[in-house]
Design a protein around this nucleic acid. Structure first.
Lengths: 176, 176
DNA sequence: AGATGACATGTCGAAATTTACATGTCAACA
DNA sequence: TGTTGACATGTAAATTTCGACATGTCATCT
């Protein structure tokens, strides 16, 4: 059911077509919270339309259909936001790999960790740049800025974890 | 395919039954990286056994079957660890909710954010306690300690984000 | 005029995942 | 001795998600 609400949420930020939403899933929200492919998005939009939670607000070239959220849709979204405050699905494939690290020999383990640290550092710079650009003065901040800020903090933690893990490896090796 | 490797990784930490693995998914790894229900775990274990990646090392009471990873299984796990270093599925339903916050009225938005901050603080204490308990001197650290450390850092970021978001809300309100 | 690539939507089958149903054992306690 | 709850495994149906296939438009460049 989460896809449904992810779509309603994105449409609350402004009208968009299935194509637009596919792009947004691939970027911001898809990196941290939820992702979906177009083959799942288009049928779901039809269902939402049938349920009158969204409606077509514009038809453009090449069959483009721009949807907007309806009052009923906003109501539905708000209800969901208040239900089951926490928990829910969590999935992070890359992190899963990191937790399996002990299966490797120490040298390879450190190699992967350094790789992670490097990646997190790069990503952090990239997201920081996006954040600075987005934040450009105006307030309230666009919702993308909240995602970007979260990304920055998360990536900083990831870096810190990688450094800690590398240090741990080194401590363990000293003992042998 | 990730479930397969999650299971191999958990079995690398030591032999376990489907029941044990279900518990581990519900706790440590399931909270941050990957989760699965027993109805998915048991069939997958059978498949892994057929593929000789794991084997039954002990049969206990009540039909308990304890599996251990085989050399071929470890090889498979290592290969996976080195493939496609990054990216992969990411899913976080709670975070999705936080990104939809703009759909609520300011007061309710702040309410949910405070709720998040409180939750993150509590969880942080809980995980810290586990970490201290686990870390108890010995080295190398048990792999659960890596997960716990990651949880601590992540929860600290979450707290920080929530505080930042609350402050942003207040700044926005001042302007009106 | 033709080629290319971004734009745009769609369906279908397979695979992964969840939910509900289903069964039985063993230990502890009343 | 009965009952409760943790232990333990399994299957079936429904839902969600992914990967592949499929089609067509529009703008730009050559």
């Amino acid at each position: 059911m989460s896809l449904r609400y992810a779509l309603l949420g994105l449409l609350h930020d402004g009208p968009a077509s299935g194509y637009d939403l596919t792009q947004r899933f691939a970027a911001g929200i898809g990196l941290y919270a939820w992702s979906a492919k177009h083959s799942q998005i288009y049928p779901e939009l039809r269902k939402l339309e049938e349920a009158s939670l969204i409606e077509v607000v514009e038809e453009g070239a090449r069959g483009r259909r721009v949807y907007g959220i309806t009052d009923a849709g906003l109501e539905e979204l708000r209800t969901w936001l208040y239900s089951e405050p926490r928990g829910g699905a969590v999935r992070n494939e890359f992190l899963l790999r990191m937790f399996m690290l002990s299966a490797l020999e120490p040298e390879q383990r450190v190699e992967l960790l350094r790789d992670l640290e490097k990646w997190a550092t790069e990503q952090h710079s990239a997201v920081s740049a996006i954040f600075e650009h987005l934040g450009n003065g105006e307030r309230p901040l666009p919702s993308g800025a909240y995602a970007a800020k979260f990304g920055m903090l998360t990536l900083a933690s990831t870096q810190e974890w990688a450094r800690w893990a590398i240090a741990e490896q080194e401590k363990s090796q000293e003992k042998s």
